[in-house]
Design a protein around this nucleic acid. Structure first.
Lengths: 220, 220, 220, 220
DNA sequence: TATGAATGAGAGTTCATTCAT
DNA sequence: AATGAATGAACTCTCATTCAT
């Protein structure tokens, strides 16, 4: 069997600024240190090699434990994936649902905040986001359904923001669904190429994409 | 081992308009019928379940052959993947490199043609494109490098079109790299959600995205 | 791995009269309450699922302790098995070796007593007996040898009783070994189907089987 | 881990007369040679070590194949067990259901034939029978239910034969259920100790046990 | 005394690939 | 050209056992 090429080993990211730039991980203190380490290792492995090409051994090697140790903290590999995907979606959703956005000025300001934050979230968490966006086929049907709901909630926030601007006459009279899809695509697809050590910080990229989004909606 | 959920079977796409709408497949007549059938089946499987979760048996079942039959026509599963990814990238590249575009009118018209064709290509071939964009980690290092070159060539076409427009003063004075990335993201990311049986035809969506691209570049 | 079906959990026997009918367990007061509880739980698990299909966790769950607790009281799972098998064999042997039997009347009375007591013992302790008879392959070679000796001692008691009756002319002139095996089989095999809540009490069944045994030996 | 003692290896039975005395195996010619060999090896392993203590590697080693080869011929280890248990029960049932028995003379002759054949079957097939009788806990719930039906059918044959003899006044007026259980126990339990190289042939033992059975039913 | 965490050594099963036919 | 059988190398997950606390 010649199944693998270029297997990722956790060392590959050692010293890599991508996960060591102070970006907080997605799991608060309620989680022990070992499970948090396992999730972090799993995020890196899944993002680099894909869920199916990652073995439980790969994940545990990243924290210096035996393969069996994974099962002390998680009931299955699939649940490790689910935890990552769920936490990512919830964190991103919370980040664009921030109540302060809603009170912010006019439709343009609101949309600017949403696009810029959603973009910045994906840039900052682009490793986890790759798992959350591209490894869904590893989930069980039930878990997949749970994730779909979170996605719909996020999409709705964009849709509302655009629709309200159109109603208020601030934005051009566009096809809301089509425009929203384009915006989401810009913000999400960047995880395919973004590097934290590149020229743009997450916030800079967020500002830039927010500007593009508003141009898409400019009358004229 | 409980590795799989919801395994895709080729019948799932039976009667699905997504691959039966007259869209030409990516392989001309130089290929025999059986290898073409295997590639088509592999495209569906890889797109639905991912390269690593697809077995050689899955692929061959799609054309009613035994697993061993794959090796009569291809030297390995990885080469099946490579063939799909390569053909997709080459076809998409050829589609936006069409010499008629270059002779076409001004910078706006050229960019409109490029964006609209690139978008339409991804919409029409969204199943194969999913493989070409998201399954690259299954490739060997050498094959991966080959693909990267094709991507660069495609990106350069966008970059040239935008840069020339900026130079000519037709477009606003934007950060070319950032804008090009945003355009590519829109055109590519649609493969995550596009359905041929949806409300937009590939060409309609292409036109719409071309319009958005031009707005991004409008002085203003 | 799909190794287990229908795993037995200790609750399955909760309320089950089979082990709660006042039948004394096989371990006197010299044993602490926790080790006695562990042995009782192990008996139930081994009898229901077999030694190899029972995990240390299964055993300890039956008394609400962690798996590690087993090792506070026993040096290994195999020794738990040995203790059960040994105690069962010794208890059964003691029960048919009762000195009062030997002083009892004639050969018929003695055999009647032996068969009826051996049968009743297996009926009353049919759960433990299942372990003692059918899980011997879980024992180490040394422990297995120890058990064999106890079995021989038991068989000898039957053999003596029959042989003496034949010599005395009270029984027909049978092939002692063959008849003894048949008697032992009746008394032991009942553990495959006996239920304490069935229609026969251990003593009733003992009496009945003693009658059958005597008929086997009746001249005629 | 010190899980195993004295692991059985197929060589242990090499030269062992128990399975090499010309006793036909339970699978006719419809089965290929390899699957038959695997079943034979599995019977020996399961009988010696128990289902759960036998690995797929143990089974395949017995026929000189790799562990994976098992799955070319059987979908799972459990189905190998089921096939053995099912074939044994069906063969034994067919052996005592022989229509010639029913036409045979009086109740005594019929019962004699049934007991003697059932006993002889277990003696001749005592290795397979050990699996069929003592490894049922390895079966899935569905397969276990299927086996129970075959057991009931067998028991009914005994019950009918005894009941008819009682009705006809040929046998003493006994408790049919209790007597039948005792007869079955004698015939089945012999698998715990019988050796084909012992002093009794299967048929001799069958005759002897049939004699005991009739004595159990003798008036007076 | 009791345990949560950890692990080495498997276990059953899968799979890409080979090969004789 | 096609395949059934075979297999080496994994893979996910389990388990008896240890040990620091």
């Amino acid at each position: 069997m010649a199944r693998r090429q270029a297997r990722f080993t956790p060392q590959d990211l050692e010293g890599d600024p991508r996960l060591q730039d102070g970006s907080p991980d997605l799991w608060g203190d309620e989680l022990g240190e070992v499970p948090r380490g396992l999730l972090t290792s799993a995020v890196r492995c899944f993002a680099s090699n894909g869920y199916h090409a990652t073995t439980t051994r790969d994940i545990t090697q990243g924290v210096g434990l035996s393969a069996a140790a994974l099962y002390v903290h998680f009931p299955s590999k699939e649940l490790v994936l689910f935890e990552i995907v769920r936490a990512s979606h919830e964190d991103a959703l919370a980040y664009v649902r921030d109540p302060r956005i809603d009170q912010a000025g006019d439709a343009s300001e609101r949309l600017r905040a949403i696009v810029s934050r959603y973009t910045a979230w994906h840039a900052r968490h682009h490793v986890a986001a790759r798992v959350a966006q591209y490894e869904l086929s590893g989930l069980s049907a039930e878990h997949y359904a749970e994730i779909l709901e979170l996605r719909h909630a996020t999409n709705d926030i964009f849709r509302d923001a655009v629709a309200r601007g159109v109603e208020e006459g601030v934005f051009a009279s566009v096809d809301v669904n089509r425009v929203v899809r384009a915006m989401l695509s810009m913000s999400i697809d960047l995880i395919r190429w973004y590097r934290l050590d590149g020229s743009d910080s997450p916030e800079q990229l967020g500002d830039f994409y927010a500007g593009l989004a508003l141009r898409m909606l400019s009358a004229g």
